[in-house]
Design a binder for these strands. Sequence first.
DNA 1: AAGTATTGCAACCGCCAATAG
DNA 2: TCTATTGGCGGTTGCAATACT
Length: 265
Amino acid sequence: MGRAPCCEKMGLKKGPWTPQEDNILISYIQNNGHSNWRALPKLAGLLRCGKSCRLRWTNYLRPDIKRGNFTKEEEDTIIKLHENLGNRWSAIAARLPGRTDNEIKNIWHTNLKKKLKNYQPCQNSKRHSKTSHVSNKGPTTSESSNNSDLSTSTKQHIKIAPNSPQLSSSEMSSVTLVVDDNQMVIIKEEKIESSSSEYFPKIDESFWADELSTENNMIIGHDQEIQVREENVDIFTTSSKMEEDMDFWYNVFIKTGDLPELPEF
DNA sequence: AAGTATTGCAACCGCCAATAG
DNA sequence: TCTATTGGCGGTTGCAATACT
């Protein structure tokens, strides 16, 4: 399998992009798309390799890129995601809308890594493998890592957005997650009569337009105080869907800025 | 003010997986 | 099934800006 030659041959340009090059690339992609990066520079009249064009577009010129400093919430998100995903920058970036893997990688190496030297986000919990769930945020006792205690110690109350696809605009729900002795996660759902939106982040239509807008993806936050009064139980196994469910929870986390406290399995 | 060290970040490099033929 | 090509990813580099001495 031969390696495709890259831009160094035949006078293809390297180094920082000029505004003129940016304009050419932007206008070409706007008019023609980028179905073939390798052919793109020649077609667009750029003295760059396709790889360079792709990088410039995805890391800098894409219209949906969010510029500017990372917020505290974004930094916290990166730290928490990195704890669980490791150096999977693209996976982390996928959960931070408008941010690129390169940007996140940079901010990690130049900023967050230093912060973590003095920060112990999970003083009380063990570090997580890729397939483990996020840690409990509150004080953790030694028994919290003991599976035999999970069924009694990991109840979670999670609010559902008023504009969830499954609910009318005036409805909210509380969901409790419980891990039973058979390592099953039980979701207990209850509609909440209160129409107060004080607990909920503002969510626009786009929230439900992406991969979250599936039947089960309606949980957007958590609150420890809401009590379950009426149960509507749904059960799924934790073994086969573990990673998929992890992704779901991370998406919830990113969308809401709040991390549901889940048990470690 | 000048020299040096550090920081931040855009861009590149090289590997790998997916895909087409 | 094999090979060539392409896109994507994580690691690394280079350099301008800034801070420090």
